[in-house]
Design a protein around this nucleic acid. Structure first.
Lengths: 349, 349
DNA sequence: TTGTACGCGTTATCAT
DNA sequence: ATGATAACGCGTACAA
């Protein structure tokens, strides 16, 4: 391996001068710089990043940990964050955690994080109960559901409001018996029914969106019917298709479905097509996330579109701030990203 | 920052002993190990990965560079490679290159690569003309189109054969006027029309699949009609929708479409739906890649399914081999992954 | 079984 | 404008 010393020797200068050239420090005579550059390319020298990182304590790289890379939502997010980070001259590398609480905590605690100036953790498994575990001493921004009063910076999706808007849209489109496809067990309690202590442990994407669902029904004077709640094993297309099939086979009449994510909705749409249920004629469907695919489905999928672009930019901005001003100085901030309803064919009149 | 020395002091041992404990070396008395472990957790010590990497010259991590993370194909690939690498106890981090030849070369040459024991580069922009640039001294495996006699290990997709199989399937399904949606300019020449020298520079996913298309037509005695060739600006859903729309508006009659990727096909399906063209009744459609979404579309998309799982495993295996036995020792190997035709609703009788 | 000494390749500090 | 020296934190060889 060719080192900076080899280059220095070849160019007849000191390693320090080579370093100056590499890092584009101003005070190097042009002639010297040339000599060094020639030596560098002659020897095909590459800086050793590990050594540089060790010395500087910085890497210029931030990590993005997502539960699963093969879900459109996270792929889209990764692309946007990569762009946003580039504006701060930061590299992004993405890791897959695996969608369990344990694996997310592992990602958080991993010593690998030393290789990143900061970490953006997209989480599905973590809840308010994990607050203590989130107390880490390096810059971290959590992206996901709402963890109130968490110890780290946090960007929440507009889960409750968004879900409420989605379901209200179904109601305004004429639906009265609205099913919901969301996380299977444990049965999500309505906040009003649970003690504060219990509730805390239950806060996740699914329960929050479930809350929005109930709120919308209540506001419209529609009774909540547990028979319309169908559990989805995993938030995948397959999970959505299976849940939708179970819903239909249960025989419970329904004229609208709110799906906890667009990916689940894609599965549900497929199942309805297979079962001969027409969308939107027989049943209207709406999802959440507005992944790029939704616009191109047939029928195109109505959805709640969080402002992904703003979310990505904010996440990077918060992280950069922590990187520059210390991970533990200021109190944690929480931001809820904006959203809008995107009405498409699956909820058309 | 708490170092290994701090731990040693706290535990009343030498840094060496702490190191042994961390790396689970056998010859440490249980009592000593306990003391050390207590000190580690008391001080919340984490090893400094940068220092370890510098010292060992290994990172236990491989990089995966993909053109765009928000395309289902690459998300899926990333997930599979992450799994395959885990079996070799290797971590995977994913980077987005940006889908241009320059950015892919940059990813290849990047000094960041020193942080990886090896790199898997999924490429779309590189061609045989870049052979020289691919001569790098660290372990690399290229994933993508076929670059004959390249200097690095290389896993090719079954582009020509797969495309031929797809188009033959359309023909057997009754299609006679089969359009193709593939890369826009430059006009892809049929191999027979081009001098060998020219051809070399033109080898990419699109031209290879185009070749398979022409081969299938020729085998069936169907004349090649340039009017049926429609250029796609980018291999995205939008690109597919726009190209399909142009095709329809051109007025050229057609009864089948071969799309260069499933993502392009998704866009085309959407455009046909908007234009009132029924699939498969009026037009049959087939894609390439068999992304997870294809199975769930309405109508579900027929496709050529490369053996993604095997591809991922092979890529990792080749890379691990290079890591263990040197990047430049043996000659480069080329593997073409297997595939199968998946006939679904878009080509149903 | 544990400790000492040193090197990995780079950059910061300070001096020249 | 350039260079000498000393870290950065860890792991390995070897000694004790």
């Amino acid at each position: 391996m060719v080192t900076i010393q080899d280059v220095a020797k070849a160019a007849g200068v000191s390693p320090m001068t080579v370093s100056h050239v590499i890092n584009e420090h101003p005070h190097v005579k042009t002639a010297t710089r040339q000599k060094v550059l020639v030596a560098i390319s002659a020897l095909d020298y590459r800086v050793n990043i590990a050594a540089r990182n060790l010395r500087t304590g910085r890497t210029g790289t931030i990590g993005l940990a997502v539960p699963e890379l093969d879900r459109p939502y996270y792929g889209h997010l990764a692309a946007l964050i990569t762009e946003a980070a580039a504006e701060h001259k930061l590299h992004v590398v993405v890791e897959q955690t695996g969608a369990t609480r344990e694996s997310e905590l592992r990602a958080l605690a991993l010593s690998r994080n030393r290789l990143y100036d900061g970490l953006i953790l997209a989480t599905v498994g973590l809840g308010a109960a994990d607050s203590d575990l989130l107390r880490v001493d390096h810059p971290v921004v959590i992206l996901g559901e709402r963890i109130f009063d968490g110890p780290v910076d946090h960007i929440a999706l507009p889960n409750v409001d968004g879900a409420q808007t989605a379901v209200t849209h179904l109601i305004e489109s004429g639906c009265r018996r609205i099913a919901i496809l969301d996380a299977a067990a444990p049965e999500a309690p309505h906040p009003d029914d649970a003690a504060p202590g219990e509730r805390a442990a239950e806060v996740n994407v699914s329960t929050l969106r479930h809350t929005g669902y109930r709120t919308a029904l209540a506001a419209a004077g529609i009774a909540y019917d547990p028979a319309l709640v169908t559990g989805v094993e995993r938030f995948t297309m397959r999970g959505g298709a299976e849940a939708a099939t179970r819903l239909v086979e249960s025989g419970v009449p329904f004229d609208g479905v709110f799906c906890v994510t667009d990916t689940v909705a894609m599965g549900a749409l497929r199942a309805f097509a297979t079962l001969g249920i027409r969308v939107p004629a027989d049943v209207k469907v709406i999802g959440f996330d507005d992944v790029p695919e939704s616009e191109y489905l047939v029928p195109s999928l109505s959805s709640i579109a969080p402002d992904h672009d703003e979310t990505a930019r904010t996440a990077v901005r918060l992280l950069v701030d922590r990187i520059q001003h210390g991970a533990t100085g200021r109190p944690a901030r929480e931001v809820v990203s904006g959203y809008r309803l995107v009405a498409r064919e699956t909820t058309a009149g």
